[in-house]
Design a protein around this nucleic acid. Structure first.
Lengths: 257, 257
DNA sequence: GAGTGGTCTAGACCACCGC
DNA sequence: CGGTGGTCTAGACCACTCT
């Protein structure tokens, strides 16, 4: 057969739409520009709104678009590189001002965390909440689980329960942690979806895709703390700088086919 | 008002559904078990199929479910930890047998890659394709871009164009690369969606969520190679072991609220 | 109040898999 | 062939933001 293979497996409409829109974004739109609304776009391309939305969702997942209810859809700037670990290993809260302590509670962690910490189930640990802002935008929310045995000399604050003192309590736990000798750490990155609490803090809807960075801190021969940091997957690229420190700023995640 | 806040912001049906299903998966199902089909499930919960699918999609995104067209929906095993970098920096293809060279072509890279490599646009580079299998399952597809200046002494194979020799060509490029002194590297992880080619190799549909790990290799004072590795986001957790080497195997990405 | 994106419905047809 | 998940439609209503 000399005929050119003509779509024996026709690609889905939303996939084709996504490609067309992606190219239009590259050539005809500038960062921050607002797109026509979904009903108009759907009509213009002759598809149902649900189909158009499937294409927009993919583009948002790839960090090309921002969509906000009640506002509209805008062209997103390139993902920002967020440094997570410079190769050397340090306790959280050491020297950098990228994270901001929010508060600290004492409660039983989720089962998976208790397992990683090797603490008994229903055994309360310190839970330090921190948030990270970059370029004026919230990019990550962290829960740092610290067993009480890791900070034995934590001063018993008189808990005036003021909002300001909550942050002070969190900083006190971090300070105590830093007195331990850090023997090592390991990390893992995986895809997750934002819980309601994280979503609120990250200015996203619940279920939004996030990159979950889990860090285990080892000291005194055991897991002395565990950090679960939730990064916005749409706007962030997690960078593990381990070399001279050249900055990277390349294109979107999906390559041209 | 003494009344307890009763859902002033009612949670969406699909979100509630996801929670219910998630708990059912924990308590009433075992790994590999197949769920009832979508039409039955939707009827059982009294929702439209589209709404049920929205919940299933989230659970699949979190690695809790496997769905395959023509087969059904099954309970997924916990995500596998995939080691990416042990802290020390090495050239790709050094010592480990986790990656398998597929082939090697000579072509102009995407614009973003050309920028990172600091090569002129439309300047052909070696493109080595490799694939990674773990636990009998394909987990990643890699494109390694190597400027010709990085492997000047590459023997000119007589290109018999056999399938087997394609892999040989790829291995030859890797061997040549390893003769350079590696001065450093940096990495970045971000969320992407699988291109058609990657999707085929990873046994997923196009657009499936993937974790894109970009690594720049520095030698001779410049970027000597650039690797773009595409990992299945549903089944993989990328681990950056940097400590004693204890294995991690904790729970799913989303924490209990 | 007007306009946006987010949710939801009740259908339909298609592509794929295993029998 | 029958059953599965994947795509698509044409509507409806809701929650949110801005003016």
């Amino acid at each position: 057969m000399g005929t050119t293979q003509l779509e024996s497996v026709p690609e889905p409409k939303y996939w084709h739409l996504k490609t067309v829109l992606s190219e239009a974004l590259d050539s005809e739109f500038t960062v921050g520009e607002i797109l026509p609304n979904e009903r108009d776009l759907a009509a213009r391309f002759g598809v149902a709104r649900a189909t158009l939305r499937q294409a927009l969702e993919q583009l948002e997942l790839e960090g090309r678009l921002n969509r906000r209810r009640g506002v509209g859809t805008t062209v997103a700037p390139p993902r920002m590189g967020v440094a997570v670990g410079t190769g050397q290993q340090v306790w959280p809260g050491t020297g950098d001002d990228t994270w901001q302590a929010v508060d600290c509670t004492l409660a039983a962690p989720p089962a998976a965390v208790a397992t990683a910490l090797e603490t008994p189930r229903d055994h309360a640990v310190h839970i330090v909440r921190r948030s990270r802002v970059s370029h004026g935008q919230p990019v990550a929310a962290e829960l740092l689980y610290v067993p009480r045995t890791s900070v034995p000399d934590l001063p018993a604050l008189d808990t005036p329960s003021g909002a300001a003192s909550e942050a002070a309590r969190a900083r006190a736990v971090l300070r105590e942690l830093q007195r331990l000798e850090l023997q090592g750490q390991d990390r893992a990155v995986e895809l997750g979806s934002a819980r309601a609490a994280d979503a609120r803090e990250l200015d996203r809807l619940p279920g939004a895709p996030v990159l979950v960075l889990t860090t285990r801190f080892f000291a005194e021969g055991r897991t002395a703390a565990l950090s679960v940091a939730t990064y916005r997957a749409d706007t962030c690229r997690l960078t593990f700088g381990a070399s001279g420190g050249v900055e990277i700023h390349h294109g979107p995640a999906q390559q041209a086919s």
